[in-house]
Every structure is written in C-alpha cells, then in structure tokens.
Simulated assay, not measured.
Amino acid sequence: MYYFFLDDKMLPVPPPKMEVKVNNKNKTVNLINEGEINIIKSPGLTEVSFEVMMPNEFYPFALYDNGVSNFITRLSGQQPTITYAKNYIDGFEKLKTGNNPFRLIIARFNQKFEYLSDTNMLVTLEEYNVGESSEYGFDWQVPMRFKQYRPYATKELEITTNENGEQVARVKQTRPTTKEVPKAYKVAANMTLWEACRRASGGSLDWKAVAELNGIRDNNVLKGTVLNLK
C-alpha cells in the first residue's frame, strides 16, 4: 500500500506507477593521446513523475480529504464524504504558483500495514495537466512532474579584528529552523497514526514509538483522540 502526500494533502488514489529520474551531471571530454575520459560530478536534481486519478464520484477504495478509508469511516458510524477533483486541482495550482518548495512524501506499507519505507523530499511542482475523456467517465487523469529542491542562500560575512590588529572575515552560521514538536496533539479528523504524527511534527516523529507510548495497537485514530507525543 502506498500513500502519497503533497504538502499537507493526501492524494485520494495512489498512482499505479511512478518514475524517479536521477539526473547525471558527469562530463565527458577528449584528451590528446589519452582519448575519452569521464569527469565525475555531483548528481543533478532528482525528478519524480506520475499520473494520478482525481475522482469525481464515490469509490470505496479512495482515501478522501480526511485521510482515512471510507470503509473505516462507515465502521465508525460516520457518513463518507467526497473531496471532488477540482478541490485537488485548486491545491495543485497554489503549489505551482506559490513560488515555494513543499514536501512530497510517499509512505509504503505491506498488506499487514507494517511500515516498509518512505520517500520524503523537498520539491517544486514543475508541471501538471488535466485530462478529461469519456474513457475516464467523470473522473480526471492528471500527469504530474516534480523536481527536487535544494535550499540555498547567500553567505553573510562578519568582519572582526584580532589581537594583532588584523581584520578577519568569517561566515555567519545560521541555525536551521525545525518544527517544534508539542507534548500532545489532538486529532482533528479520522486519519492514520502515521499521518497524525507527520502533521504534528513535520515528519520528525517515529509513529511506532507514539503508538507504544499511547497503547495503540493499530494504525487508525479517530477524530478527537489526544495523542501524547513525549
């Protein structure tokens, strides 16, 4: 089972396939009497692309905006709700035009819902297309392409004078900003424990440790549950 998150939104239907391209920056040159050589350089930016289904009607297999399957929602006695394709497309447009990177998170679980691995990458949305066809019915097919984002910034020099009267320059060190993890987190909607931990901490919490701390034996938590995180 795969779960795809773009920023704080989960895609309702996981794409059937995904392509990850690691761009090469190596350079090939020809040397006199030596022939062709390969100059190894750092890899380029990674690109991720996939095509996702955007439903415009109810499907029991789809995971809508509250992040929990409609089957579980029905068991809890609640009425399943649908988030229509246009709502997701509006969100994609904000990511495209917002001029800010965001998190692409892909979580992988086996059939027993045991955690396998995840991809957590800072990206930009390079392009997306909306396809409508009688083949898709009322649903939309949306091919999307993302590119890895590497933070960068200009360096600020601080000039000081040492004991010999000489001016010395050093680069000012800035402390990285991280999301502070609260002591407790109240779940706002039915969701998986993994998703609740991600929303509370930005991805720094181990959801298995939180499950053990709170005596939770499955991966689903209901709206209103208060999780102890520390």
Rank of each mutant, 00 (worst) to 15 (best):
D65V: 04
T81P: 02
M10I: 04
P16T: 13
K147M: 09
P55R: 04
N110E: 15
V68P: 02
F146C: 04
W140E: 02
R108A: 14
F138T: 13
M53G: 11
L104V: 09
R103C: 05
F50T: 05
F138N: 14
I89Y: 00
N24H: 09
V142S: 00
A85L: 07
L104Y: 09
K17M: 12
L45Y: 12
M10L: 06
F146H: 02
N56M: 03
M18Y: 06
W140R: 00
I72M: 08
Y115Q: 05
N129Y: 08
F58E: 14
E93T: 09
L116G: 09
I40V: 14
I32L: 10
M54R: 02
G98E: 08
G98P: 04
V130P: 01
P43A: 11
E93S: 13
A85P: 01
P14C: 08
K21A: 14
Y84N: 06
Y136W: 09
P101L: 01
L75V: 08
S49H: 05
S42W: 08
P43E: 13
E57W: 10
N66M: 08
K17G: 12
D90R: 00
Y115L: 04
I39K: 12
I106Y: 05
P80D: 13
F113R: 15
I40M: 14
T83D: 07
G137K: 01
N120Y: 05
E135M: 01
Q78E: 15
V20P: 05
E114Q: 11
I37D: 09
S76H: 15
V22W: 14
K94I: 04
V22S: 15
K27D: 14
V68N: 08
I40L: 15
A62P: 02
V68T: 07
R145D: 08
L125K: 02
G98M: 08
S76A: 15
V123S: 03
L104D: 07
I37G: 07
K21T: 15
S133P: 06
I105M: 13
M54N: 02
V142K: 01
N26A: 14
T83P: 03
P16Y: 12
L122M: 10
N24G: 08
E135A: 01
L11G: 03
V22D: 15
P60T: 12
F146G: 00
V52A: 13
N56K: 03
F138K: 14
E114K: 07
N99S: 14
K27L: 11
Y64A: 00
F50S: 06
K112A: 15
V142F: 00
A107M: 12
A107Y: 04
E127V: 04
K94Q: 12
F92H: 00
N87Y: 09
K41W: 06
V68W: 01
M53T: 11
L104I: 10
N56F: 01
A107K: 07
N100P: 07
P16V: 11
V68M: 11
S42H: 10
M121I: 07
F61N: 13
P16W: 11
V123K: 00
R103N: 11
Y149E: 08
S117C: 13
N110H: 13
G77E: 08
F113H: 15
E34W: 11
N110V: 13
P60Q: 14
Y88V: 00
G44Q: 04
Y88G: 04
N30D: 13
G44S: 06
N120T: 02
F61S: 12
K25S: 03
